[in-house]
Write a protein that binds this DNA or RNA. Structure first.
Length: 492
RNA sequence: GGCGCGGUACCCAAGUGGUAAGGGAGAGGUCUGCAAAACCUUUAUGCGCCGGUUCGAUCCCGGCCCGCGCCUCCA
């Protein structure tokens, strides 16, 4: 099975296949670690995760590199304000980033590339650009890329910059540059700023050169796929192409994938808009990591996603439906044998599911056959028509679903527990929803004890006491379900 | 201004030239001591508006209205 994926560069759907016949070599732009990640960041990383997992489910091997930008203007600004060197400032945000990825079940790339560990490679690339007359140094010691050296500039974002007038009063602060659009490759050190000594002078790398140097170092001059948020298309990715292809004369990446933005209440998320949420904000409000994951991946990557709290609630309920269903299959007793109708239903669901993913990662379309199967199978179970082999076939379909979506298996307790601990340790305890704390107040053992007491009360037909216990548990966010096979409880 | 995307039921959302997946929510019912879960029924002759092409358009073409994103750091 082959994934058809929209390619920004060609403007059409192209098959995504490893050009070396072995593993798909892909580079995805990672975070700049100057603060905690927000849900917009994570939508992009989640969609790249969907891509990764889909390719793996199709049997493809991956060589996926993600950079971490651990030196840039914002980092320097913030670390200076905090009065500590960037080497002490960034680790906490690097750790937080990976913790958040874990909470959201985002798989780690095969290779993490840190900017500060690849400075030599960036310097070497700038020297090659200088040799090619595509880079020049200004009076203050900074290096810039000469846009006029790369006629194809704009081919990714389809921008025609030929009409832009050089030397126009576009950017008075950058009067030293030959052209207003020329971008920085190397920023000369200013007093007190983090800097590296290099043959091209003391300074630090520009953002764009990082990705060019690291992607080529880990994946070769020309690789299969480059991914990132839509905002990176211009100028970041365009600049990467210019830097790399000027030196190699080969396409940097054959395929470019851009994840569209997440909006909040119909607007781009921004601190100044007051609609800015980190993952931790949502966890502390009591939303489950799985619900956040599902909400952020259920709208296909090529569409804007309008984030709302209603959407999270909806995702919570949808996951609950799937989990309840799987538990019913796993714990129920089914007679041996196979029901041809159910076998067909399971096969069809699997086929449709895979086809939807193969069609440009259409996650919304991929969900539908799974929920169809849930309803069909539930009905069959109600009528005693579902047999043991059918159960196994359906469980296999659910595993294929979770291989990409990864929300049925309940791993929500840990991220929530960690978020609460983090809030308490960093003086943000006030941000923890009271309801969430109430929910945490009962141990599993305490719940089991109360459930047992209620079961006894029911047996003695003391329904008043039984209902009282059920209500008490409900107030603590524990929901009970009676069935022939006993009582199931779950945390809200 | 340039480039691009979207407007489908109460909400989210898929989709196709032949009459609308799925999820959530609501209503009624079955089951249950009562609930919960599950199942059944139900909620768009309708897919922003106006023209056109066509035997037939939500899906193709043109125009218009509305919303959003990028064009500067930004996932």
């Amino acid at each position: 099975m082959t994934l058809r994926l929209f390619n920004t560069l060609t403007g059409q759907m192209d098959d995504l296949v490893p050009s070396d016949g072995q593993a798909l070599r892909m580079y995805a732009c990672g975070p700049t670690v100057y603060d905690y990640g927000h849900i917009g960041n994570f939508r992009t990383f989640l969609q790249v995760d969907v891509l990764r997992r889909t390719l793996k489910l199709m049997g493809m091997k991956l060589q996926h590199v993600m950079n971490i930008t651990d030196v840039d203007d914002k980092i320097i600004r913030n670390s200076t304000a905090a009065g500590i060197p960037i080497s002490e400032y960034t680790p906490r945000y690097v750790d937080a980033f990976f913790e958040d990825l874990d909470a959201l079940r985002v798989e780690r790339p095969e290779q993490i590339a840190r900017a500060t560990e690849n400075i030599d490679r960036m310097v070497a690339l700038i020297q090659k650009l200088a040799d090619a007359k595509a880079a020049y140094q200004t009076e203050d010691g900074s290096w810039y890329f000469r846009l006029s050296a790369f006629p194809e500039y704009g081919k990714l974002s389809k921008k025609d910059l030929s009409g832009m007038e050089d030397g126009a009063r576009v950017d008075v602060d950058e009067y030293e540059k030959d052209s207003a659009r020329d971008f920085a490759l190397w920023k000369a050190a200013k007093p007190g700023e983090t800097a590296w000594d290099a043959p091209i002078g003391r300074g630090r790398p520009g953002w764009h050169i990082e990705c060019s140097a690291m992607s080529m170092a880990y994946l070769g001059d020309s690789f299969d796929l480059h991914a990132g948020g839509e905002d990176l298309m211009f100028p970041h990715h365009e600049n990467e192409i210019a830097q790399s292809e000027t030196v190699t004369h080969k396409p940097l990446a054959h395929h470019w994938m851009h994840v569209r933005f997440l909006l909040v209440d119909g607007r781009k998320m921004a601190k100044s808009e007051g609609n800015f949420y980190t993952l931790r904000d949502l966890l502390l409000r009591g939303y489950k990591a799985s619900a956040i994951r599902l909400a952020l991946i259920s709208v296909p990557y090529r569409h804007q996603l309008n984030f709302t709290f209603d959407g999270l609630t909806e995702a919570t309920h949808a996951i609950e439906r799937l989990r309840t269903f799987r538990e019913r299959l796993a714990k129920g007793a089914f007679a041996a044998g196979s029901n041809p109708a159910m076998k067909d239903a399971a096969e069809k669901a699997h086929t449709d599911y895979m086809a939807a993913l193969a069609n440009d990662l259409n996650t919304a379309e991929a969900r539908a056959p799974i929920f169809d199967l849930v309803r069909t199978a539930n009905t069959a179970i109600d009528q005693g028509q579902l047999l043991a082999e059918d159960r196994d076939a359906i469980l296999a379909v659910l595993r294929a679903f979770d291989a990409v979506f990864d929300v049925i298996e309940d791993r929500d307790a840990e991220p929530t527990r960690r978020a609460i601990a983090w809030a308490q340790q960093t003086g943000r305890a006030a941000d923890i929803a009271p309801e969430l704390l109430a929910r945490q107040s009962l141990s599993d053992e305490a719940i089991d004890t109360l459930v047992a007491e209620r079961t006894l009360a029911k047996k003695q037909r003391n329904f008043a006491r039984a209902d009282q216990i059920r209500n008490e548990l409900a107030e603590k966010g524990v929901i009970l379900e009676d069935s022939k096979d006993g009582v199931r409880w779950k945390r809200k």
